[in-house]
């Protein structure tokens, strides 16, 4: 019995460092500056809790660890509020995607609120060693939810553009037919319209499956290593589709000019 207690005490002492190691690896990481889009501010401002992290590392008391936990949870609340506002104001989102994203954000807020209550009630370093890493691993606000929201908005925005292109294609085809009936040479305009249609069709093929693949992703999948590749592939696909749609936009402008 005495031996068991001694072992438990030794474990607690060791866990003081492990808490920080674990929490450190879960929370660590300043966002790397984006090379492709320097203007957009990153949501993960982990420097907000840097001082508390340092204090908890230097002196891993229950108080310091709780303070770090509260800070990490609070900055996630701020991020989730930003994401919720983004979802609410994104006019390009379908109703289904808006509902799904809002539910995911709301569920994450509820879960973090409950976890905050648990952490606030913790009385030992050992308990905090278990609970603090959950802030990151059970919710993945920065690594999963944030890119998920942005990528779904991006995919839906491209889908909206594709729909507009399809209406425009019908209009331009009508104008070309009318010009042709009036004896005009419409070769260039028709070539521009064909190029536009081709670019839009390819973009549509790329964008079509994205949202259905993004919405079901979970923190568990991220932890297992399966969600990250889906997110990165979706970003590449959206960028490719966006470039195709930009080209289609140029084709449309050229077609309109040729019809003048």
């Amino acid at each position: 019995m005495q031996l068991t207690v001694r072992r438990a005490a030794a474990g607690l002492l060791a866990s003081g460092l492990l808490v920080l190691t674990s929490a450190g690896s879960a929370f660590a990481a300043s966002p790397a500056p984006s090379k492709t889009a320097p203007s957009a501010p990153p949501l993960a401002q982990s420097t907000a809790c840097a001082g508390l992290r340092q204090a908890a590392r230097a002196d891993p008391t229950v108080g310091n660890l709780k303070a770090l936990g509260d800070c990490e949870i609070n900055r996630r609340f701020t991020t989730l509020d930003t994401l919720a506002a983004r979802v609410q104001s994104a006019t390009v989102l379908t109703a289904g995607a808006r509902t799904a994203l809002a539910a995911e954000i709301s569920g994450t807020q509820s879960g973090l609120t409950a976890l905050k209550g648990t952490i606030d009630a913790d009385t030992t370093v050992a308990q905090l060693r278990i609970d603090l890493p959950k802030i990151a691993t059970q919710y993945r606000v920065y690594l999963l939810v944030a890119p998920q929201v942005n990528l779904v908005i991006g995919a839906d925005a491209e889908t909206v553009a594709i729909g507009k292109f399809q209406t425009l294609a019908a209009n331009l085809a009508g104008r070309i037919a009318e010009a042709k009936a009036n004896g005009r040479d419409v070769t260039a305009a028709q070539a521009d319209l064909d190029a536009m249609d081709q670019n839009v069709a390819t973009a549509q093929t790329q964008v079509g499956p994205l949202v259905a693949g993004l919405l079901p992703l979970t923190p568990a999948q991220w932890n297992a290593g399966t969600a990250g590749p889906v997110l990165r592939a979706a970003r590449s696909t959206e960028a490719s589709a966006r470039d195709l749609l930009r080209a289609a936009r140029d084709d449309a402008a050229a077609c309109v000019a040729a019809l003048r």
């Binding site: 889009a37 957009a40 501010p41 990153p42 990151a136 920065y142 925005a157």
Partner: peptide
């Protein structure tokens, strides 16, 4: 719509460049 897509892709790029939580 393409402007919205640009912004969303840019934001997602920043998110995905984040190395940790």
């Amino acid at each position: 719509a393409l402007g919205s897509a640009d912004q969303a892709i840019s934001d997602a790029t920043n998110d995905l460049n984040t190395k940790g939580e």
